[in-house]
Structure formats: C-alpha cells, structure tokens
C-alpha cells in the first residue's frame, strides 16, 4: 500500500533540509577554497587554510585551551548536575518547586550579562586566575543543560528499582552507580555532548573571561577575522565541527562500552 504525499509537503521538507544543511555546505566549501579571500562557491580546491590554522601559534594554543576548558567544565557540570537532577526527581515531593528553576536560571540571564558579572565578581573581585575563571564561567554556562537533560531521562525512571536493589543487599551509593547510572546512560551521553558543544562554541562568556596569554578558539577566531578576511574563519569552523563530532563519537563509544561491561 502506498500513501500519497501532498506535493506541498515534499516542497516544504526540501526547503527545511536546504535551510539546515545549506550553511554547512557553504562553510565547508569556503574552507576548501584556494583563494586568499572568503568566497563561495570555492575557486580551486586546497587544504592550505587548514594548514594555516596550525601555522599560527595562537590557534594551536587556543585549540588545546578550548578542548581543556570544554572537558573540564562539562566534567564538573556532570558531577554537580547528575546528583542535583537525581535529588530533584527522587525527592520531588519533599523539595520546594523553585529549586529546579534555580538550576535553569543561568539560561534566562543573557549570556553577556552573565559573562560581565562573572568578570566583575570572580575575575576582578577575587582575582581568580584566567584559566580557572574560564572553567567556572563555562561550568555555569553548561550546568543548566546538564540538569535539564538528566532530569528528563530520570523523569521516566522508576525509583522502586533502586529500592529493589537496596532490599537485595546493595548499599545506596553502590546502587546509584550499578543501577541508576546505567539506566540514564543515554541521558548522560546527551548531556555530555550538549554541554561540550555549548562550551567549545561559546563566545559571550569567554570574551569577558579570557585575558593576556589565555584565549579560547572562538575568541581567537574573532580576533583573527578583525584583521584578516581569509578563509581561515571557515576552516576553523570546519575544524570545530570535526572536533565536536569526534568527541561525540568517542563519548558514545567509551561511555556506552563501560556501562555495557558492568
């Protein structure tokens, strides 16, 4: 049996697809251009703008910094966010309703305001080193995503499963790791990926927290484009995409495998 599809629906689907994929095609195309200016479609094919990234020391440094900050802040946000989401779902009735709102509050504040106030308080007031204030800022930035995503996967979790494990002799903390975590694995992976992407692409908070000698990749890119209009901006974008996809694949693989091995 075939189902007839309205031509307008097909047209609409194609439009949405172009809207989603189009920018990616343009960025990848521009990055591969042999010209010394940003253009699309690419004129001549070359990888020289990718080589260019690694020739500039500032780019090399900031790629490492960005990866470190993204891993650290995502890791810290998971360590804080998973127990927080757990507690808010497990003890929903006992806890006040505003508590879950508290954890998504940073999303409601414009990121520029968040970045500026962090600069005034953390970096200036307490003279916290740049690197650490970057980690603090990014942790704050990604925490709401972690709490939201983990909460969503815990919403369907039947906590009597946990009680069953405890009644069979498994101590509560052990139960958390052997029973609860494996069952919200996909939520943890999703939270990790979302948080990592948010951190590695962030401009508005990093722009306040970076300082002499320490910068992140997007900030370095911003500085670069102020002086040069070459396809480096496109090649860095492609590099960021590749890095993100690679991290996603690795996380999916390793987290998936360790949990399955239990």
């Amino acid at each position: 049996m075939t189902r007839s599809v309205h031509p307008a629906l097909i047209g609409l689907a194609v439009l949405v697809f172009i809207f989603l994929v189009g920018p990616l095609v343009i960025v990848v195309g521009a990055a591969l251009s042999d010209t010394s200016f940003l253009t699309f479609p690419p004129q001549g094919l070359s990888l020289r703008w990718f080589e260019n990234i690694f020739e500039i020391a500032a780019f090399r440094r900031t790629i490492v910094t960005s990866l470190q900050i993204a891993f650290l802040s995502t890791g810290i946000a998971l360590v804080i966010g998973i127990p927080a989401a757990y507690a808010m779902n497990r003890y929903r009735i006992a806890l006040p309703g505003w508590l879950s709102t508290l954890f998504v509050l940073p999303v409601l504040v414009p990121e520029l305001v968040l970045g500026f106030s962090l600069l005034k308080s953390v970096a200036v007031q307490f003279t916290v080193p740049i690197y650490i204030s970057l980690v603090i800022g990014h942790t704050l930035l990604v925490l709401p995503y972690v709490v939201r995503v983990i909460s969503a996967s815990l919403a369907n979790f039947d906590f009597s499963v946990e009680e069953a494990a405890i009644s069979l002799g498994s101590p509560p903390l052990k139960t958390f790791f052997t029973i609860l975590l494996p069952n919200v694995r996909s939520g943890v992976i999703a939270a990790f990926i979302l948080a990592f992407i948010t951190s590695i692409n962030d401009v508005s908070i990093s722009i306040f927290m970076t300082g002499p000698g320490i910068s992140t990749l997007p900030i370095q890119l911003l500085a670069h484009t102020e002086q040069f209009f070459d396809p480096t901006v496109a090649s860095v974008s492609v590099l960021l995409m590749v890095l993100t996809v690679a991290v996603m694949a690795i996380v999916e693989r390793t987290l998936g495998l360790t949990f399955l091995a239990k």
Binding site: D158, E163, I166, S167, N183
Partner: peptide
C-alpha cells in the same frame, strides 16, 4: 538497621526489575 542490611525479600507492584 539500614535497608540493605535487613535481608528481606521484596516483591513490588510494578515488578521493579533492573531494565538493563
């Protein structure tokens, strides 16, 4: 005594099997 040291067999309404 904490619950995990009581050595009691429990059967729940919604089965509470470990899904994984």
């Amino acid at each position: 005594l904490p619950a995990h040291k009581r050595d009691i067999g429990l059967v729940f309404q919604n089965y509470a099997l470990f899904p994984h």
